[in-house]
Design a protein around this nucleic acid. Sequence first.
RNA 1: GCGAUCGUAGCUCAGUCGGUUAGAGCGCUGGUUUGUGGUACCAGAGGUCGUGGGUUCGGAUCCCAUCGGUCGCCCCA
Length: 439
Amino acid sequence: MAKIETPRPVRGTQDMLGGTPEAFQERFAHVIATFDRVRRLYGFNRVEVPVFEATAVFARSLGESTDVVSKEMYTFEDRGGDSITLRPEFTAGICRAYITEGWQQYAPLKVATHGPLFRYERPQKGRFRQFHQLDAEIIGAGEPGADVELLVLGDQLLRELGIEGVTLTLNTLGDAQSRDAWRAALIAHFEAHRDQLSEESIDRLARNPLRILDSKDPRDRPVADSAPGIDAYLTDEARAFFEKVTAGLDAAGVAWERNARLVRGLDYYRHTAFEFVTDRLGAQGTVLGGGRYDGLIENLGGPATPAVGWAAGIERLAMLVDMPERASIDVAVIPMGEAAEAVAIGIIADLRRAGIVADMGYRGNMKKRMQRANAQGSRMAIIIGDDELAQGEVTVRDLTDGTQQRCKIEALGDFPLAGKASFVESLLRGFDPSKAIAN
RNA sequence: GCGAUCGUAGCUCAGUCGGUUAGAGCGCUGGUUUGUGGUACCAGAGGUCGUGGGUUCGGAUCCCAUCGGUCGCCCCA
């Protein structure tokens, strides 16, 4: 008989198990929990949007032409023949919902979400094909105050996660007029120094000239660094907008650095562009990034609507947060024999109902069960054997120092372990022995 | 799409100028201790050396191909 071959996990996906020494799942969960708590402080409501959308949602928002749309999305035909795409980002889907669900009535809308995203890319450090992001958006607010609020939110999130060594880099792309003028000047500059550019950047010049500015190729750096900055091309309005954003950050006490080379490829980006970056993640330094996308909702067929938002990679943040404490249990219940097990089921049910973290093995002799209790980090063991049972008692053992004592089952709720009354009291407060005995 | 690098036990890895039965630590199972863990000691199970082909008397080791992991380039919504 042929050996059954186990299907391999799909490239770029990951499995996370809680309770392991790496505690990656715990760190992942901690990032989400922190985000959920902090976003509430800023009045962002949770929004749920589908994991897949009509392909047009992303194709229009990203611009049909790009590599991103043609090569890097998970697109398939469903049984009805419709082209469907697994979401590669949150923003487009949220904007689609804003239009189709009539959420204009709630504008300005402050929403947050998190969940899986899918991109068909080559996996590497901090890049997966199914990955997860946190996302925060403000739709229907054209004021710089929205940009500031979002940035302060991002800053507080990173602080509360305890992530060190991240800097906020900030730039403005100006309004449409500023942006077009700057872009033209950049193209002129790069054309003039075409012979000094790398082959890749010569290609970029035709495709996406702004990207030459953040090229990693050392051959490009001199030309990129001497390229004109946007400041000379900013309209008065655009300059005033950026000044209000930076003034707001200063007022909120958020540190930032100007990065005049920070750009966005797509045309609908306006004004603020930002990235919180670190050098601790290899080639993927951006931990949280976003900007203002005033043109996007129109691209999707909606009314002209200003909006700004950011997204942050949960895996990347999880790699940077400190190891959380491993979950441990308070009490291990250890019955010896069937009669004891029946009583133990009652006791452990009441412990758990009282909010005490308790566990009981399905099998094993006493030694096995004690070993397991220890491996789980249990602070206490409640041992129920024939001797105890005969007298309506249990043995309560403190696993931190090995002391133990007998106790009537009825008295378990206020069992006084010598020298540790308060500990035991808090542990077993609320325990109802009458229910345990009833069982 | 391109490049580099690595695939040996459940995990982390040693072993390669080609040479008998492929090793360690951790984990797992059992025992020292038929009702007492965390330390210690003893024993045991577990491996088509990623896969396929080639060179050779002989391949975990050398060559080719292929699949997979990792890291980087491209791209980055």
